[in-house]
Design a protein around this nucleic acid. Sequence first.
DNA 1: AATGAATGAGGGTTCATTCAT
DNA 2: TATGAATGAACCCTCATTCAT
Lengths: 202, 202, 202, 202
Amino acid sequence: MARRAGSIGSETARDIRAAALRLFARHGYAAVSMRQIAAAVGIRAGALYNHFPTKQDILRELMVGHMEALIGAWERESFRFVDPVAALEGFVRFHIRYHLDKADAVFLAYMELRSLEPDNFRAVDRLRQYYEGCLRKILARGSADGAFTVADVPVGAMAIIAMLTGLNCWFRAGGRLGVDAIAEIYVRMALGSVGARLAAPA
Amino acid sequence: MARRAGSIGSETARDIRAAALRLFARHGYAAVSMRQIAAAVGIRAGALYNHFPTKQDILRELMVGHMEALIGAWERESFRFVDPVAALEGFVRFHIRYHLDKADAVFLAYMELRSLEPDNFRAVDRLRQYYEGCLRKILARGSADGAFTVADVPVGAMAIIAMLTGLNCWFRAGGRLGVDAIAEIYVRMALGSVGARLAAPA
Amino acid sequence: MARRAGSIGSETARDIRAAALRLFARHGYAAVSMRQIAAAVGIRAGALYNHFPTKQDILRELMVGHMEALIGAWERESFRFVDPVAALEGFVRFHIRYHLDKADAVFLAYMELRSLEPDNFRAVDRLRQYYEGCLRKILARGSADGAFTVADVPVGAMAIIAMLTGLNCWFRAGGRLGVDAIAEIYVRMALGSVGARLAAPA
Amino acid sequence: MARRAGSIGSETARDIRAAALRLFARHGYAAVSMRQIAAAVGIRAGALYNHFPTKQDILRELMVGHMEALIGAWERESFRFVDPVAALEGFVRFHIRYHLDKADAVFLAYMELRSLEPDNFRAVDRLRQYYEGCLRKILARGSADGAFTVADVPVGAMAIIAMLTGLNCWFRAGGRLGVDAIAEIYVRMALGSVGARLAAPA
DNA sequence: AATGAATGAGGGTTCATTCAT
DNA sequence: TATGAATGAACCCTCATTCAT
C-alpha cells in the first residue's frame, strides 16, 4: 500500500522503459496494456503514472531516446571515415551492429511511427530524416568523386537503409551465421548496389 | 433493421475486406475496432458477423489472400525468364509494381504477422517463405552459372526483398520520381548488390 | 451476453434517465458512477453507452429536459393570469407544486450547474434565465400598476425564487404540513415581500 | 524532502483549509482530489496527511468550523436586539453580510451536507438547526407580540433563510448593486413577508 | 442480412491513502 | 514535516462478440 523499502524512482523508471520497449516491440504499442507493462516491472498499473504521465509518453521517450542515441553513436564513429567507400562500409557495419544490438528499439522506431501523436511524430521523424541524411551525405560524396554509381542519392539511401534494417525482421542470434559474417555480406551487397566494391585489404 | 435494399452478401463481404485492409494498414490491427470497420462499410458492427466469424478471421483472410495472389501473379510471370539476370530484373520490376499497386495488403502482410494467432501465422508464414524461395531460386541459379556473386543466397534474398519492400514505407505516387524510374534504379541496385549489371539492350 | 428478450431501447433509455436523476440528486453528479446507474437500471455499465454517449450527456439531457418542461408547464398556465397579484400567487403555487412534484430534477438543476461543461452550461443557463424572466415580468407589471412595492425587480425575483426553491431542501411529504398548506404560507410571504397581500376571496 | 525552510505546521494546516474551502466550494467535494488541494497549497498529496487524517476530516472541520463561527458571530450581535422587528432586520443584515463575506464556507455548508459521513452530518446538522432556531425565536417573539403575521414559524424561518442564502448563488461583488443596497432590499422583503415593515427612521 | 441492445472483460487513468526516506 | 513511490479500488469508456428482433 505504500512505497516498498528500497524502491528508487530512477530505477523503476528505467525498468518501465525496458519492459515497455520489449513488450511494444513484440506485440505492438496498441496491443500492450499499461497493466502488462506494470506486471513486467513488478508493480501495479497506477504506479506507472508516478514515472510517466501517459502511455504515449513512454512510447515517445523510447523512440526519441533511441533516435538520439543512434545519431549520437554514429556521429562518434563517422569522423573516422574520409573515403566514401570506407564510410559506406563503416555505415553498414555500424548500422547492422547497432541495430542487432538494440533490435527492440530499432523495430519500435520503424513500426510505431503511426502510433505517435502528431507532435511526437514530427519530433521522431525529424531525427529519422537526420539519420538518413548521414547516409545520403556518404552517397553524395562517393557519387561526386566517382567512387559510386548512384542513379539517385535519396532513393539509393532509402534502398540501402531498408535493406539493412530488414535484417531485424529475420536475424536471430545463434542462427547459421553470426553478426560479423552477415555484416560482411551486407557490406558487399551495399557497395555492389552503388557500383563499388570492397578495397582489397592491403 | 434487416437486409438493406439491394444488398448482396458477397458485395458486403468484399466491402468489409476492403475497409478492413485500409484501416488495418493505416492504424494497425490492434488499433482498429470492429465498429470502425463497420462504420467504414456503412453497417453496424453486429452485421460484420454475418460475413466473418471473428476479427481475426478478417485479418487471416486478408493476409492469406494477399500472399496467394502475390505468388499466383509471380508464377504467371516467372516462366518467361530463363536467364537469371533477366529473372532478377523481372522479379524486381514485378515486386515493385505489385507492391506499389497493393500497398496496403503488402504493408499488412509485413506488419501484422505478429497479430496472427499461431495457426494462421503458420499458414501465412509458409506462403511468405514460398515467395522468398522464388527469389532464392533466381539467386541460386545465377550463382551457379556465374552470373551473380552472392556470398549467401538466403541472406542475399532477404536483403533484396527488404530493400524492395522498404519502398512502401516512403514512396508516394505523384512524387519526384514515377514508378518506372524508381524500378529502374532498384533494378540496377539489386543487380549490383549481387555483382551483376543490366545487359545493354541489344 | 446479448440482447435480452423483450428489451426495448426507448424503455431502457427512460429507465436510465430516471435512475440517473435519482442518484445525481441524492449523491451529486461527481459522486455517482456509471456502474451505479447501470446497477439501478439492471444492466451493465457498458450498455449505458448504447443510449447515451457520455455521462455528461445524461446530465445535460436531464437538466435541459427539466428546464424545458418547467418552462413549458408555466407557459401553459400563465396565460390565465392578467392581474399581477393573481399572477404572482399563481406563480408561487405553480412553482411549489411543480418543484415538489419533480423534486429531484429541480434539485439537480440548481445544484449541478457547475458540473456542466461550458456549452451545456450555457444552454441550461439560458433556460434558467428565461424562467426567472417570467417572474421578473410579473413583478415589473405589478410594480408598474402599483400593486407591488419592489425596490428592485431583478433582485426581488431572485429572492422570491430562492425562497420558494429552498423548500426542496427541507420539505418531506407526510410531514406536519401538506403541500397546499405550505403553498398557502408561501403565497402570503411572497406577496408580503413585495408589499401586496392576497385579495380577500369574494 | 523534509520540512520546508520556514514552514510552520499550523500555517500549512491553515493553507490547506483555505485551499480546500475554495476548491470544494467551486467544484464540489467529490470532484476535488487531494492532489488538487495539495497543489493549491504548494505541497504534495502525502503531506496533507500530516495535518488531516482524511479528506472527509477536512470537510468536517470546514463545515463545523463555519457553523460555529457563524453562530458565535450572531450571538455576539443578537443580544443587542430587543424589538423583534429590529431583530429581524438585524438578522437579515447580519446574515447577508456574513454570507457574502464568507461565501465559500456558506456555499459549502449548504451544498455538501450530503457528502458528510453520518456522524459528521449529525454534528453539522445540529449546528445548522441551532442557527435556524435563532431566526425562529425572532419570528416567534414577533408573532407573539403582534409585530409579525406568521402563519407558521418554522416554515417562515426556512423561507426567509432560503431567500437570504440564495443571494450567494448570484451575487457578485462589483455588480450593479452593492452589498448595502441589496441588504436594504432584502430587509424590506423579509419584513414584508411576515407582514411587517421597516420603522421609519426617527 | 441487418439492427440495436446487451455482456463481460479490459482499456488508460485517477483516486485516497500509506509509508520508507 | 515533506517527498515520492507505491497500492488497490475505482473511474469513464471501448472492446469483440452475441442474439432477439
